[in-house]
Design a protein around this nucleic acid. Sequence first.
DNA 1: TCCAATGGTTGCATTATGAAACTGATTGCG
DNA 2: CGCAATCAGTTTCATAATGCAACCATTGGA
Lengths: 155, 155
Amino acid sequence: MVKRTSFEGDACPIARALEAIGDWWSLLIVREALFGLRRFGEFQSKLGMAKNILSARLRALVDHGILETAPASDGSAYQEYVLTPKGRGVFPILVALRQWSEEFDDRPEEIATILVDRAKGRPVRKLELRAEDGRLLAPADTMLKPRPAPRRRSA
Amino acid sequence: MVKRTSFEGDACPIARALEAIGDWWSLLIVREALFGLRRFGEFQSKLGMAKNILSARLRALVDHGILETAPASDGSAYQEYVLTPKGRGVFPILVALRQWSEEFDDRPEEIATILVDRAKGRPVRKLELRAEDGRLLAPADTMLKPRPAPRRRSA
DNA sequence: TCCAATGGTTGCATTATGAAACTGATTGCG
DNA sequence: CGCAATCAGTTTCATAATGCAACCATTGGA
């Protein structure tokens, strides 16, 4: 078999996330969905992607529990694709990607939009990783530990 | 031309980020690099990926300024791939992906590791998006604004 | 009713990916 | 030094994914 390697079943949570949303278009679809798009045609025209690919991606996102289909909210007989909580949970990933571009892109002047706090219209803060006690953590301040075995409860 | 659509030049910073690190393996390579890997063979054996693909990805990451090559630190004549600041800046993206899996994965028991604060050994906090004034922001509390017009300047 | 728009699917060409074989330097070792 | 093993890739070839265009079945509006 010479198919594309799947990360399903991989023990690394990053690989597992990529398995679900690591495709070329998936995150952009979720981005548009967070922005309010719901209909097939809306995604297709906004993203400018081929319809067969969009169709395949939507199905995959539904399979992964990121989107779900629902009857159209406008009364028509068509259906819509709406985000599940799992899908809305992708938001911080998108913010992280956006902020990375804003900080490191070689041609930041080509970036058209900035993410702002709706209430004040001011740019949002950078995402930052903090310890339980609030200390700011750089990569080197972190490490990976084996997941605690799910056995008896104790103190 | 029927090649894979490129997001280069796209005005969306998320698309631009995906152009650089949205490939199937790229983020995993950066993850390993953040973990300390530097040599071709280390990446290859740790990730278990085909050498030609690894070769292509490493070159692309170098082209994008995420990795750079350096003479080997152990005195050998080989070279190493080390993260640039732009590459280390990917860290929050990886954390966001990890936390998304931790929160929403269907089989969380298959996730082998947890990210902890090195100093205390305690799990890190969830990334959260905050406004300038510190308010916690949900997706609906944010919006996109056109980037402020660039200052008039010769180019 | 007729016809356009919607929401797909199918077919085919082009690209990307992957396994394995191959190459050429570098290194360890006797 | 001489030589085998290792390292870091490249090449080759088969298969999978992507993209475009054409097609088709419903839906919805006039």
